[in-house]
Design a binder for these strands. Structure first.
Lengths: 225, 225
DNA sequence: CTCATCAAGTCATCAGATGATTTGATGCAT
DNA sequence: ATGCATCAAATCATCTGATGACTTGATGAG
């Protein structure tokens, strides 16, 4: 375990501990040295040790039990993956979400329940236009509609990631993009739902892909200009 | 800002602060009350406040600057998304990864570089069989091959998520699954690379889909029995 | 052998003090 | 008035010491 630089001691201590954990120095379920021992190993005060440990707990690597000790919960750290995804930029994120959207539509065509269909048709009908209640409200309705398609896939992992991308993309667009993205018309939206309802996976996937292509092209144009 | 229960004060304090941040009480870039003030607002000691703040920093919600203050970095929290994905279970994760794989192959067919092709062919040739160096080594080579396909998509967000799923799936399989998944033969592997090399996106996507279908079916069988 | 009791070990929290860094105010020289 | 060096206040970073709460294995009575 390495000593550390002066300021940012907590971060250095956390990184040092994290490295040891990922290296497999302690097995999952094993107890790591107590706070006093870590104080000596890392050459920092107990308060700093506690802050470092607390960070690793929040990352899911450690688990502290009062009166007993601090235990290794996992020796793999996936907490950085989403941060790296966020740093990949708007284009890759949009394309990745579109990929999930396409495959979700394919699955939805095969697995949708009657309730899924009902919800999709209802949200499709409720979309309306930008004129109804303003832009933000329309955006909300549009997002809800697309999400209902992904939900109909029945795959919770895809839904989670879809939500993540939607949130990340929205944040980026709000802060960086000037100029609007084209919004496909109602017919393109309806085509997706109809393909899903008819149970044709290829048609469903194709309709989403056709839906996304012009938007992605315009996004490319906006980002390169 | 709520008071708090007794043990687990740090977690409660962090949750309380997190809720306030997500509610938009402070705008992004705005400075939150200093540690002493938070001590009074949350009715906990400064050490506890610091641990709570440290957790929110590691989640990307806050940003502390010595001598200046602690500032809001983001008002949306995506740190829980991957944890929820992990809890969705092996089947959904496998299917989600397959979805990324299919769309990645499609993009790879359209965008691969000569270096991508070279790498894929090299890794395909190096795959060999389980007999060469044992099961773990073969698994490593197989993973490297599949990853090279996803890499050839040129989409870093998809690559990140693919890696995450691979790691999560591996962990789950190691700890829970008895019985092997079928491994498609070399011809199926080669078909994917050839489709990508020929620049045919539909064929590339279809070959990956055909590749994954029997594996997913067997996974279903193993999980339901 | 069973079970209640207890003491040691460990994390949780608090309190107070000092150091390091940032930042705006002050005042001087130009 | 302007530019600049200096300084003091504000703030986070770290350390030290002490007390409380909880867990766990040892102890000893029955």
């Amino acid at each position: 375990m390495q000593p550390i630089n002066r300021t940012n001691l907590t971060e250095s201590a956390a990184e040092s501990l994290r490295t040891e954990i990922l290296s497999g120095r302690w097995a999952v379920g094993e107890r790591i040295p107590n706070e006093t021992a870590l104080t000596e190993l890392l050459a920092v005060s107990r308060g700093t040790v506690r802050e470092a440990v607390r960070v690793l707990i929040s990352k899911g690597l450690l688990d502290a039990r009062q009166g007993s000790g601090t235990y290794v919960r996992s020796t793999v750290d996936t907490s950085g993956a989403l941060d790296r995804v966020k740093r990949t930029g708007l284009r890759d994120q949009w394309e990745a979400r579109a990929a999930l959207d396409v495959e979700a539509a394919r699955l939805a065509a095969l697995r949708h329940t009657p309730e899924d269909l009902e919800r999709m048709f209802k949200l499709l009908g409720a979309r309306g236009t930008v004129a109804d209640g303003g832009r933000d409200a329309f955006g909300q309705r549009d997002i809800a509609f697309h999400r209902s398609i992904v939900e109909a896939s029945g795959n919770k992992a895809i839904v989670e990631l879809y939500d993540f991308f939607t949130s990340a993309i929205l944040e980026t667009i709000h802060s960086t993009l000037r100029g609007d993205l084209p919004e496909p018309d109602d017919r393109a939206h309806a085509a997706i739902v109809e393909a899903i309802a008819s149970g044709d996976p290829d048609q469903a996937a194709a309709s989403v892909r056709a839906f996304m292509a012009p938007v992605l092209a315009e996004l490319d144009r906006l980002l390169t200009q």
